[in-house]
Design a protein around this nucleic acid. Sequence first.
DNA 1: TGCATAAATATGAAAATTCATATATCCTTG
DNA 2: CAAGGATATATGAATTTTCATATTTATGCA
Lengths: 157, 157
Amino acid sequence: MPDEARPGGITSAPFVDEYLLYLLAAVSDRASAQFHARARKAGLRVPEWRVLACLTDEDGAMVTRLARLSLLEQSRLTRIIDQMAEKGLVLRRPDPEDARRVRVFLTPDGRALATRLVEDARRHEAGVLDLLPARDAAQLKPVLKALLARLDGEAQV
Amino acid sequence: MPDEARPGGITSAPFVDEYLLYLLAAVSDRASAQFHARARKAGLRVPEWRVLACLTDEDGAMVTRLARLSLLEQSRLTRIIDQMAEKGLVLRRPDPEDARRVRVFLTPDGRALATRLVEDARRHEAGVLDLLPARDAAQLKPVLKALLARLDGEAQV
DNA sequence: TGCATAAATATGAAAATTCATATATCCTTG
DNA sequence: CAAGGATATATGAATTTTCATATTTATGCA
């Protein structure tokens, strides 16, 4: 790869390099890309891995809830569930208490794959955190958790 | 909105709630959604806003570089540039020193819009950081910057 | 110089994603 | 208990996105 050719035409004060939303997206992007390469080898695309991971935590979640957890739009999730069901990873069951609802469950195969990938993800995560000084690494997740809670709790800013 | 119906079927130890890559994606998602609603009102879709913001920093960047900066895949960026050019926001010019390259520039209209939105973004960012205790808020960006630098510098973990 | 290889961008075709909305069920209230 | 409205999921159609690859230009080296 050649050097990151920076043309003469640079403007002035940097913006994106210092912009929180950019930093979040960029870090998420790069770090995730590393792991997603592994998920791919297990035959999963990114959203499928997300769904699998979320079901690890909340097996039997209803579609709407799962969509929110998985950071996916509902109609998209519906189609992803279709595909995962075809692959034998998940299973739809109507909610006995509310016939509008559909609950999504891991199949044994799905659970086995999820377990394997979650272990892998934990290892990968450790590797990412190792890139930071211990003090920073220790604080990052708690701060993000707090921020997420606030963002979810807030009215739109 | 009804309460976040948690069915009986919760598994065991939480994973995603504590998983760095999930937290990053989730925070990025939620925080960005807030701002993206504003970008939309200016007639921009998310990737277009990203490109505009990046050009604010590096006007005249070549396509490959701009794709990397904007977190977009190259062939996608090519088409987004088409659309932005049609809207009169950007302009393609061949690089005089290397005819393979195409450099992308903001038009005056593009720059005006970018300036306006960047100001807006800065205000929004301040609002997001205000959700955190001052100490945490102060550390978040530097930590993310450091992590990004490491991720970019590293071989795949 | 001429060839093989690499780099930068664009593009066709398949697949995924979005947006609006249909459908089915549930809930509230008169 | 019927009607109106809300909620949950699914789906059609348009648009976007991806993936592989074509095309053009540059570069290194025999």
